[in-house]
Simulated assay, not measured.
Amino acid sequence: MSDLGGLRRINELAILTAVRAGTDTLTEVVRETGLARASVGEVTRDLVASGWLSEAAPVVRGRGRPAARYEYRAEAGVLVGADIGAFNLRVAVSDLSGRPLAQTRRFTTPELDARRRLRILDSAIDECLREVGRDRDEVWGAVIGSTGRVGDGRVLLSAAISDWTGVNLSAHLAKLLPGCLVDVGNDSRLAALAEQKLGPGRPESLVLLQAGRRTGLGLVVGGRPHAGFGGVAGDLSRFPALKWEGAMEYLQQSGVAPTTGPTSDPVADTLNAAVEGSPAAIAAVRRYVRMLANTAGAVVSILDPEVLVLGGSLASYGDLILPLLASELELLCLRMPRLEASTLGADCAVLGALCAATEMVDDALIGSGPGPLPVHARPMIST
């Protein structure tokens, strides 16, 4: 790509980003992007002609001619995000701006073989596409998040799922959605991306503590998810001395049920009983939190993040867990980060996959991503 062509695509992305954020008139786009009015006018006309933007009904703002308005054609294609864990498989479909349109969840088990798990993934993707009236060839980008160590589109190591190590998720996705941009990432890292993009404040540094049936860490450094040199930053599964992998046993084996009635989930029973004030349940939760704090305190002391986010399925119990976690961390850390419970909860990884898919398509637009836009999307892009 020539320097001129690269600059034009950067200008296209800047204008698309501005319009997508709600800046809809030519004057506002000029002010928002800092580009020359003549350049904005020329590029905007080309983006309308190529299908990325559409002209909206003009509005009268004061005296003079009504200002022309533009809208981002986020409906031109769709994106797919997926989160594959041992016990749950989540899939979501969004428009090109990352706005979720449909979502589904399937319950699985760690013992489920890889072939059946992939069939469930395919079925969930098709279900979401049908719900929004789209076909597979209308998907421009798809990102899968998976538990375990992930690299080069494969699951390199999975302790949570027995028949998952070695599965080539990228190849499977490329076969299911031919011509589509695809990527595969670690679920905790994608969850951290969602917290940074969709959570409050968009902090420059963040530690996401995934708390659920399995624990995990997602790191954000400098406003971006941090993977490390080899893509394993935040993976502490080989440090048994931290004892956080087995921390859930304190909740699973407490034998405490709430007075409102037990459920089929012993973890929920213990947490609900603790909310009701049961001393035995609160003691079990304290032991669980103490194990989490051993790991979280070490990571917080190394990174000194602005925010520590409690994520995963236990984020909904933030009012119970965060005060206990704060009291433990205050004994371990020289400076306490701000503690927050995720508002995204158990959906954070699948929403992070949609965020990553949005970025992937945007990067392809300006030629800096892993590949060009899908063949069926290229005719819409000005040259």
Rank of each mutant, 00 (worst) to 15 (best):
A268I: 08
A268F: 09
A268R: 14
A268N: 04
A268D: 10
D269S: 00
T270W: 06
T270F: 06
T270G: 08
T270R: 06
T270E: 10
L271N: 12
L271S: 12
N272E: 12
N272K: 10
A273C: 00
A273V: 01
A274H: 06
A274R: 02
A274P: 08
A274C: 09
V275L: 13
V275C: 08
V275T: 10
V275I: 07
E276I: 01
E276C: 01
G277K: 08
G277P: 01
G277A: 04
S278N: 14
S278W: 00
S278R: 05
S278A: 13
S278Y: 05
P279T: 04
P279E: 00
P279Y: 05
P279M: 05
P279N: 05
P279F: 06
P279I: 03
A280V: 07
A280D: 11
A280N: 01
A281D: 01
A281K: 04
A281V: 01
I282L: 14
A283Y: 05
A283W: 04
A283K: 08
A283Q: 07
A284T: 04
A284G: 03
A284V: 04
R286A: 10
R286N: 07
R286G: 09
R287F: 04
R287M: 11
R287T: 09
Y288P: 07
Y288E: 10
Y288H: 14
V289F: 10
V289E: 09
V289Y: 06
V289D: 11
R290L: 03
R290F: 03
M291T: 14
M291Q: 15
L292A: 02
L292M: 13
L292R: 04
L292Y: 05
L292P: 07
L292N: 03
A293Y: 08
A293P: 02
A293E: 08
N294E: 11
T295E: 09
T295F: 06
T295K: 06
T295M: 13
T295I: 03
A296E: 12
A296M: 08
A296T: 10
A296S: 14
A296N: 10
A296W: 13
G297T: 02
G297W: 03
G297E: 03
A298K: 03
A298S: 07
V300A: 04
V300M: 01
V300E: 02
S301W: 00
S301D: 02
S301A: 05
S301V: 01
S301Y: 00
S301G: 01
I302Y: 12
I302K: 10
L303M: 15
L303E: 05
L303F: 15
D304K: 09
D304H: 10
D304S: 11
P305F: 11
P305M: 12
P305H: 08
P305G: 11
P305L: 12
E306G: 12
E306D: 15
E306L: 09
E306F: 09
E306P: 06
E306Q: 15
V307Q: 15
V307S: 10
L308G: 13
L308E: 14
L308S: 14
L308C: 14
L308K: 11
L308V: 14
